[in-house]
Design a binder for these strands. Structure first.
Lengths: 185, 185
DNA sequence: CATCATAGCCAACAGGTGTTGGCAAGCGTG
DNA sequence: CACGCTTGCCAACACCTGTTGGCTATGATG
């Protein structure tokens, strides 16, 4: 049951097709048959190489924020640094879009989303503010603004949000993030 | 083909069940059979009374922000007024949740979402700022924060965002909305 | 060259989906 | 009362879904 190099192109084609389909259609509407067709492969190959649809999804839906070290910049520039990093991070990785598109209806995906913000963002915030008690709340607030942006720009495609340039978005969003990160209500 | 008062309880039960199912499961996973079962009704009745699944969804998925007149409050309190209104508005009406849950995978629903923010919010903003050129952009920015909050609190249920009280949320979110509404980057 | 695991393909299954039509019972209207 | 429309239920359709098993051929290995 081990796979050789000969099938590697096929496996990679499937993985790539799955990423695209899941990113644009979400888990339910991205059918195994459609993914297989995109990858020029028989649907049964998908099962042989990846077990089942859920396992295939799990492989495509792991996303890492890859946060930079926010303690490296002055505390009052953390918001700007975070905004710039995030927008470029999810502009070349459709992982967040995949996750978000299905997290609205699938609890497993929602769990991953929760894990990302609790596990990757909250700890970072705790170190830059030095206050562990409010870190979770601040991470949640950052999530509302950050995910709201992803939602409006990449998923719902609200025209005014799509039309803004990266720089414009950073200019508007950074102060909001800054206040959530280290400011007070 | 006209319906009498006798079937009115059944029709209302279907509508109510559909709202709940669509709100929690999204369009695809909310099956006609499940809705019918919740309403203690045969699946074929759903079709007779509402034509097909999409039409039934369209009936449950119309949402009105019911924005108050933001020009009635001082300009620098518009953010606070908007925040308080919105959070209470969508806490007793699951319409927005229905729409958001399926707008991530369904373009019709996404269209409705776009229409809401372009048609209901943007004009209001134009009048309070007196600047029609930036109104659409400001509406989009407000959408990122407002929808992000709905997403995190009611759909993804990020624990820190769920645990905050209404008042806390307003205190944190209002300034962000205020800046988007009438401030500058 | 002979062997064998693997890759690829085809057909089929079982289950669930939206949707349709027909038939018996019920109520309101003439 | 008798007619006719509405209601409710049952069964079935046609389609699509994920998933499985078996067949052939191909490449690597000894």
């Amino acid at each position: 049951m081990a796979f050789t190099d000969r099938s590697l192109p096929a496996r990679e084609a499937i993985l790539s097709a799955a990423r695209s389909r899941f990113a644009t259609d979400g888990y339910d509407r991205a059918t195994v048959r459609a993914i297989a067709a995109d990858a020029h492969v028989d649907p049964s190959m998908v099962m042989r190489y990846f077990g089942n649809k859920r396992q295939l999804f799990a492989l495509t839906a792991d996303f890492d924020l890859r946060l930079p070290d926010l303690t490296a910049v002055p505390c009052d520039e953390a918001g700007h640094a975070l905004a710039t990093h995030l927008i470029s991070r999810w502009e070349d990785d459709e992982g967040l879009q995949i996750l978000l598109r299905t997290a609205t209806t699938d609890d497993d995906a929602a769990d991953r989303m929760r894990a990302i913000f609790a596990g990757q963002l909250a700890p970072q915030i705790a170190t830059i503010t030095g206050d562990a008690t409010t870190a979770a709340t601040r991470a949640g607030l950052v999530a509302t603004q950050a995910l709201g942006l992803v939602l409006c720009r990449y998923v719902l495609r609200l025209p005014p949000v799509v039309e803004m340039s990266r720089a414009e978005i950073v200019r508007w969003i950074a102060p909001a993030l800054q206040r959530f990160l280290a400011g007070s209500p």
